[in-house]
Each structure stands twice: as structure tokens, then as C-alpha cells.
Amino acid sequence: MNQYTVIGLRVQRAGPLALLQDAGRFGVRRLGVTQGGPADLHGWAWANRLAGNAWGTPALEVTFGGLALVAERDLTIAVAGADLAATLDGEPLALWQSVPIKEGQTLAFGTPRNGLRAYLAVAGGFRAEPVLGSVSCVVREGLGGFDGHGAKLTAGDRLAVTPGAGERVGREAASVPEQPDYTGPASLALLPGAQVADFTGASLYAAFNRPWRVDDRADRMGVRLTGPRLSCRIGSLISEGIGLGAVQVPPDGQPIALLNDRQTIGGYPRLGALTPLAASRLAQCLPGQAVRLVATTGERALGDYRYFRRSLER
């Protein structure tokens, strides 16, 4: 950090997992460095948008709640994504809109009420030194975050923000259709991949017609789904690059949807890949929630993604 560092918030209580995320770390995957970035792109992008920030501005990803922050100056903030029962000085905090807060006020997250990951943006953006081109915090790799070494937030941390920002933001709110209900069963759009025909017919029927349950073995690397056992004529492949949302099926027949912090290469056969927005939706599911896989086309997936990005610009 340099002499221009401005502290915006102090961590009073860290909670289980709060990570700084920009859009992700790109161009270094060939070195074995994972993508990182927000697990729920939609919630993250809206928090930034409502705080008046450009796409890619660093925001906090708060998983499961528990985080408590004290403002060290007047700021404008926005919280989007999951409803983790956030409060401002004990009063419920309005989500999906910009909120001015005063120096000394306490922003505290409770426990999940709707979804799993909330995104906190401050007008102007959080500030950290990029590592390999990104501030995205990947604990396993020791890269990014406020310290540059992949540390999640801990009590006592003082979080830098971009100086001079935050004055010019008006009151902004997301329209209701942009505020998902994460509690219901989720339909996850999947683009079928090259090995889809190597699964048995019964397995494919089950994959796309039976409900899947989100397992408690779920983190930013991937989410395991439990349900009928899928069988594939291919046991394993020579390791190859794997994209965001890839749904791989190891020999136990239980799929794993790979998220932002996945390993860069892998060798299990795949049903295909969730669309970016479907991967985001899955990242908001709590263990035990039911999801369905729905095959989609590239055209439809692109249309949905374009609509999402355009809606942020209005």
C-alpha cells in the first residue's frame, strides 16, 4: 500500500469467509493459476452497478454471513446477492440498492435467509495491489486479496478504498426481477459437452430429468451434486483444460460442477458446462437444496448472457 491509501472500513468480526473479488485472474491459466472471481457473477455485478462502479471493480464476497465492519469514513455502499440478514447499526439494511453510511456505523451480516453469498460494493471500489493482474483472492493459491497473499478477511483488518470516491452516487435500486429468490428449486442451464454421448441412455435421462441435491461438499472450487448414479463408458481422460461450470462425473457417478477456483486441468468425463449465469445460480444454493440440469443451446446461453450484461448498463 502507498501513501494515498484511504481506509474505508475496519473488520470487527470476520465471519467464516469474506474474500475480495474483481472479475477474476485471466491470461495465466496456462501456468496452473485458477480463474478466481465472484462465484455469483450476477450478485457481484449488481452490487458494483448500484454503487456506481464499473464492471470489474473489486467488491467483497461474503459467504454465509458473520462479517461485521465499521465505517471509518462516510461511504456509499450496496449489498446484492444473498440475503444474509445484514444490518446497519442493528437496523435491517436495504439490499439491492445504494445506501449512504456514516463514519462509525456498523454493517453486520447475520446468517443466510435467501442464498449463500452476498456482495458488498463501496462506491469507488475496494483497493488492493493486483497480483498476476488481479486482486481476486484465492486462498488455496495464496494469491490476491487485501494482503496480496490470498488471506481471507480477519478481525482488525482495515480495508482500503479508492480515495475521493463515493460522493457522486445517487440513490439506485435494482428492479425486482433482478433480485432472485434463491430458496426455490433451481434450473441450471447446461451446454452439453463432447462426452455427453458416452453416458448411458439411462444416465442421460436421469441427469436431465431427476432432481439433484447440493451436497455439503461445496466450495469455490466446485459443488458436488448427489442423486442417481451416472455411468459413463469413459472412466477418465488425459487431463485437459476445464472451463467454468464444467460438470464432471468421477467414477462414483456423482457430478461435480466446477466453479471459479477449480483446478485448471482435469481428466474426468463431463456432461457439459453450466452457463456462467447457471454457475452463479448454483453458487447461491445451500447444501440440501434441489437443482435440475436443463440442456440449453449456445444461442440461448449467449442471449441470456447478453441480456444480463445489457441490463447492467441501463
Binding site: 485471466f26 491470461g27 491459466r29 496456462r30 488425459i238 483444460g241 485448471t264 486441468i265 448472457y305
Partner: peptide, 21 residues
């Protein structure tokens, strides 16, 4: 956006807003 070479393959990652799939 990214290139991931491996034993027999090359994964090419691009920005679908700049270049359609």
C-alpha cells in the same frame, strides 16, 4: 481471455461479448 494447453488439447477461452461462440 485464456489459453490452456495440455497433453493433447488446447482450451481456448474468449470473451463471448466481443466474439460470438
Amino acid at each position: 481471455v485464456d489459453l490452456v494447453p495440455s497433453y493433447t488439447t488446447l482450451l481456448v477461452v474468449f470473451d463471448p461479448l466481443r466474439l460470438s461462440p
